[in-house]
Design a binder for these strands. Sequence first.
DNA 1: TTGTAAGCGTTATCAG
DNA 2: CTGATAACGCTTACAA
Lengths: 351, 351
Amino acid sequence: MSSQQRSRRSTKRVTMTDVAKLSGVSASTVSLYLRRPAEVSDALGRRIQNAIDTLGYVPNLMAGALAAAQTRVIGVVVPSLVNSMFSSTVSRMQMALSHHGYQLLLGHSEYSEEQEESLVRAFMSWSPSAMVLTGLQHSRETRRILTSSALPVVEMWELGSNALDTMVGFSHEDVGRAQARHLIESGCRRLAFIGARLSIDNRARLRATGLRTACQDLLGSSNCQIIDTGTDRMAEAARKALRALLAEQPDIDGIVFSNDVLALGAIAEAQARGIRIPEDIALVGFGDMDFSNCCLPSISTVRPPRQEIGDRVAMSLLDSLQGKAAETTVDLGFELLVRESSTRRVGLTIP
Amino acid sequence: MSSQQRSRRSTKRVTMTDVAKLSGVSASTVSLYLRRPAEVSDALGRRIQNAIDTLGYVPNLMAGALAAAQTRVIGVVVPSLVNSMFSSTVSRMQMALSHHGYQLLLGHSEYSEEQEESLVRAFMSWSPSAMVLTGLQHSRETRRILTSSALPVVEMWELGSNALDTMVGFSHEDVGRAQARHLIESGCRRLAFIGARLSIDNRARLRATGLRTACQDLLGSSNCQIIDTGTDRMAEAARKALRALLAEQPDIDGIVFSNDVLALGAIAEAQARGIRIPEDIALVGFGDMDFSNCCLPSISTVRPPRQEIGDRVAMSLLDSLQGKAAETTVDLGFELLVRESSTRRVGLTIP
DNA sequence: TTGTAAGCGTTATCAG
DNA sequence: CTGATAACGCTTACAA
């Protein structure tokens, strides 16, 4: 009758059972108290809380998640952590969601669909309660995994067709069009687009497309050069790009950049070559970075709703997590900020 | 003898048992195959892999973590996600650690000890395998929790005494001293420090202290004003701070900033007032931001080892996670980048 | 090399 | 409102 004792690793952690023992109730009551305190009598509640405090009990979320078959985790994939636009969004999401007991599992894809897929895979094994992706472009597998998971999914920072579930963002093509219209109204006639990472950054490409479309529509010319700089040392890459652009097309008078750092680099190059901004060339950036309003000339730019996106994603997530129906498309728009780099004195530039 | 059947939520997920059944082996063999494939015969291995593929099995990490009493999660707290210095570090950590199957649970404290504590608390319930904090300043409770957890802990971005476990970073006081020395060698005699968030950013304060110490040592004067701007709209705050500074002390000839955005703002203000940089006032920033080398004048600054910190933290973590002893102090140093904003023509400035 | 069975610390169900 | 007790899906000690 060897009542064999399986020796098992002794996790010296304080468990719910310990709390139950100390407070003289059953574990299920402790569990109930923790999850729905109102349903436990005051007397017991106090005793339990007491035990928790004296023991320093910390619930084991793993066990809880396993038993309840759900976690309070939300997987988030952004292209880059270093890009402060996405960080702002994530930052706001975290603030809002942590208030409701959710944790963010954060990953960056470096603008690669494969990386995104592998992150999604990794996140899925945590059985998250929801997933948030950036943009609408994903690998076939990513789409399949997410679709079949039936999880709430939010795609942010981009609007379009073919969404998985919910979209929160704005139209990048509209941004490009607005930038073009502004430059053209300022008197520019030969526009160009200088972007970083255009080959992989779908949203930047959409803005370039919008620019070109507007050129076509407003100027009747499809001659709008689009230049892709490398990915590193952006400001310097912009200088090089500007040099190349001017060599080929010296009469350029308006340039749109995929971000403000590029614009700043171009300003430096222009100053070095005696090109006047905005008189000779007007510039518009994207992102409204911290410095954009404080350089000389200050940079006209587009402010994306970076924080608003975070807030709305969180809101949407909380809604669907609580079973409420949420809007499936949230268009947050954007703001064109006209500053010195594109403000030409009237009379000088009207053709 | 009512052999009562507890009805339980049917998690329709594919489990390890399903895989086992389909491949005609036991669950433990599947488990073994997943963890140490070499110890399973090739034939079975192939069959198991097959079953996994056809079923689309995704391991449940919760269950695994619970059973093994350990997770592949590392909790990371940074002051701010939006500050790209920390993002770079985190980004590199994630790259390195994800290769070894670790996930990062990321949180930002907004430079508040209380927020940090509550994040640490939240992270602890995931029984992480390690924790990473920023800086050496933590609440008493945070220290207690971490100390008693016996987890590997890394404090990064700061060096000093009183570490919890391992430190990876550099000396901010040394940075301040180096900045002072550089300015003084360039001929400056009346220095000042303009910082954002000085009241809560311990590292910036340490740099200010270093600056003041060096002034004392090299100039024999403790007259080195330290100004704290607000936390928002930094570039504009810097303009205001510069104005205030000049009103009070018009003979200032060297200013150190707690980051490059502030320096950029000050440059704008100086240009607006006809103050020549660096001839009238020499400027040194901190952070080596993307734009620092591309504005006019380019900003002299200090490049912190942002990415190196991430790499070394990951390395250190992996070491201790594998039971190897790791260095407890890793000093990565920093680099003073002398650019136009502090390069005075010789002869002009020697007193 | 493979299988058996005992946990891991919760939550959910259901009976009191 | 409270308490037994059976899952949850996996790992691991141990036996075969």
